[in-house]
């Protein structure tokens, strides 16, 4: 039977060889998600000493098959910074076959860019060839664990490097789950050797929405496999929380971040995500720098906005993506 990744057997597309496949990860320091609205500022403050960040994370799909300015600028940044590629469409948990066109493009981009990390989410994005562009929750069953493990192994073989998987924020839970999410991640790491990106805000969001203790989640994680953390803001809708990425980090998320780093007993590459109502770059860096203080024990003094600031007026959007789309000012010229 032909494997889903049968294209790997073609001689022209052998898996990439990553000499660091089994080496421990170095901590990249403190970074932010690369967003096109910051390109003009970063053009003027290209070097790390001017930008104030140690590394960037780029949304993978925005640079696959891209031959324009954004790709040009990404490679310019790469001359000065480590870059992580962070995907939203690998759909590692889907029952559709792995998208070989996607993997080929990703493999090509990895070869060209040499990213420090390649990550995606423990989720699926669609079935029957349709992409919802949402990070849908994986049923946490034995069947699902076997299925996801096989796919992670295929992707790692294809890319010649470890895949880093992130815990998504969830708003529902399938009936009949065999595992808690942290147990599922533990098993997945054991089965595949993949690494973890722990989004502390997602743990908090899911803990409120699903009614579990976030400390139990941290207790259950395979700490040695954590190579990256995400921080982000969320919106309180009174009855639940939405992972909107449009606000500063909530103080309870900062506390959870401190607890995670304490448990790891080492620095972990830390990244701030901001995807809607995005502030100017210096303001973003100021928020990121709070992480350094938190590790030293300086918790940001912020009011608990959980109940009084609850936003119940409108539908809030999880995983906002429109700010990732490149918008450049156009020129309007009369004919020559």
């Amino acid at each position: 039977m032909k494997s889903d990744c049968s294209f790997l057997h073609h001689t022209d597309i052998r898996p990439l060889y990553d000499p660091g496949f089994n080496k421990p990860r170095a901590c990249l320091g403190y970074g932010v998600g690369l967003r096109t609205c910051h390109f003009p500022w970063l053009e003027q403050h290209l070097l790390p000493r001017d930008s104030g960040v140690d590394w960037f994370e780029a949304i993978t799909e925005n640079f696959l098959d891209h031959k324009g300015y954004a790709r040009h600028f990404l490679f310019k940044l790469r001359e000065h910074y480590p870059i992580a590629l962070h995907g939203v469409s690998m759909s590692i948990g889907a029952t559709d076959p792995l998208n070989t066109a996607y993997l080929k493009s990703l493999r090509q981009l990895c070869g060209d860019l040499q990213p420090a990390l390649v990550s995606d989410h423990l989720c699926w994005t669609g079935v029957n060839g349709v992409n919802s562009h949402d990070l849908l929750p994986v049923p946490l069953t034995e069947e699902s664990l076997k299925h996801v493990s096989e796919r992670v192994n295929k992707v790692q073989d294809c890319l010649g490097r470890k895949l880093v998987l992130e815990n998504p924020s969830t708003y529902m839970c399938f009936a009949g789950n065999d595992y808690a999410e942290w147990d599922f991640l533990n098993q997945l790491v054991s089965c595949t050797g993949c690494e973890l990106l722990i989004d502390v805000n997602n743990i908090y969001v899911s803990s409120v929405n699903q009614g579990f203790n976030p400390q139990t989640y941290l207790d259950g994680l395979p700490l040695d496999s954590i190579v990256q953390c995400h921080l982000a803001g969320h919106t309180d809708c009174a009855t639940h929380i939405i992972d909107t990425h449009d606000k500063p980090v909530h103080h309870k998320v900062w506390a959870l971040y401190r607890d995670l780093i304490d448990r790891c007993g080492r620095n972990v590459s830390t990244l701030l995500e901001w995807d809607a109502d995005i502030p100017d770059f210096p303001e973003l860096v100021a928020e990121l720098n709070l992480a350094k203080g938190v590790i030293r024990g300086d918790m940001p003094e912020r009011a608990d906005s959980l109940r009084p600031g609850a936003n119940t007026d409108s539908v809030q959007l999880s995983t906002p993506l429109s700010a990732h789309l490149e918008k450049a000012p156009s020129m309007f010229l009369e004919q020559q």
């Binding site: 919802s132 562009h133 949402d134 849908l136 708003y171 529902m172 839970c173 399938f174 009936a175 009949g176 789950n177 409120v208 929405n209 699903q210 009614g211 009855t239 639940h240 939405i242 539908v315 959007l317 999880s318 995983t319 906002p320 993506l321 429109s322």
Partner: peptide, 26 residues
């Protein structure tokens, strides 16, 4: 769906249903 957390399951599902449209419209 399992009944978890403070939201009724139809409201949990609605977050995905509404988010899907809103995200693509944006």
């Amino acid at each position: 769906m399992a009944a978890t957390g403070p939201l009724a399951i139809e409201h949990q599902l609605a977050i995905y249903q509404q988010g899907f449209r809103l995200r693509l419209i944006e």
